[in-house]
Design a protein around this nucleic acid. Structure first.
Lengths: 156, 156
DNA sequence: AATACAATGGTCAAAGATGGTCAATGTATC
DNA sequence: GATACATTGACCATCTTTGACCATTGTATT
């Protein structure tokens, strides 16, 4: 069996029905599997992305860690759809606004959160001397970043 | 748990709703935690700055001390200050992050709202091929836009 | 008063402890 | 053999902890 598959299984075993979050130390895990620490990053990058329904959070330095959160299935599907099909690499102000309204309607965010999201991607927030295309690309990045955060909260 | 986190918690426990000020002896605290005295300075410098909403006052020599005050400002005053003095036309990622944390600590925003705000101004959300100065300016716009939304809600 | 000494706290650079990135290389699959 | 996937290692970034040396203030001695 491939090393990467073994590491993937190991992590997924820790993420059970009840445990939707796991914290690990990169170096410890690497030592346990007797591989390069960067191998852990490879596994995370190829099997624990938002696309797969996971959110990663980490911290360097003494007492550093890597935390993996598993998104709820229906939530993750909804958000992945939003992330890929509707946001993509570029999104207009109007489309973004509609999308945020729908998040609210589906109760994935509170009214207050929706209002803040609207404010963050509003035309006035992004009034810069750049092309509309650049703005749409920027808006997509900001929106996706916020959506990932929403996803992280929903599972908790 | 990290030493620095433990010391941070220790101090924050002393700063309760009623106790907005605490006085401590650097050497005593260091001995209590069995660490280098300068570790106390590190904690203060990274977790009790004005950005975090604290003011430090200290005195050397015999009977020396370190006093920590938690800033207390009324809501509208606070938001105007944040909007104009602290954000301005440009703000770094770190400063923005501290500001949002403070909003959360003062309960002007919910944890979910704070997380979304953090996501909106995070380095990854603004990873564009533009200069740092441009990013800081953009971040300021986005943050101010969101703060206006928060202020609108608080007033109601 | 002036001086010495003790008692504090402050600074800063180095070392330690983690995790991240990326390009080179190896391996399996078509 | 070409292509995609896996593995490694060198180098980088960030956060924490410590220690040597410095600055300030209070107190005891002259």
């Amino acid at each position: 069996m491939r090393l990467s598959d073994a590491i993937e299984q190991f992590i997924k075993t820790m993420l059970t029905q009840t445990e939707q979050e796991v914290e690990l130390k990169r170096n410890e895990l690497a030592e346990y599997f007797n591989c390069a620490p960067s191998q852990i990053n490879y596994v995370l990058a190829t099997r624990f992305t938002p696309d797969h329904g996971y959110i990663i959070e980490s911290r360097r330095g003494g007492g550093g860690y890597i935390r993996i959160f598993r998104m709820e299935q229906d939530t993750s599907e909804q958000l992945l759809y939003l992330l890929h099909e509707r946001v993509g690499d570029s999104i207009s102000a109007l489309e973004a606004s509609h999308l945020i309204m729908q998040l609210h309607e589906r109760e994935l965010v509170t009214p207050g959160e929706a209002a803040i999201m609207q404010a963050a991607v509003s035309p006035s927030a992004l009034s810069l001397p750049i092309s509309t295309a650049m703005k749409d690309a920027l808006r997509a990045k900001i929106l996706k970043s916020m959506l990932l955060e929403v996803a992280r909260k929903v599972k908790q």
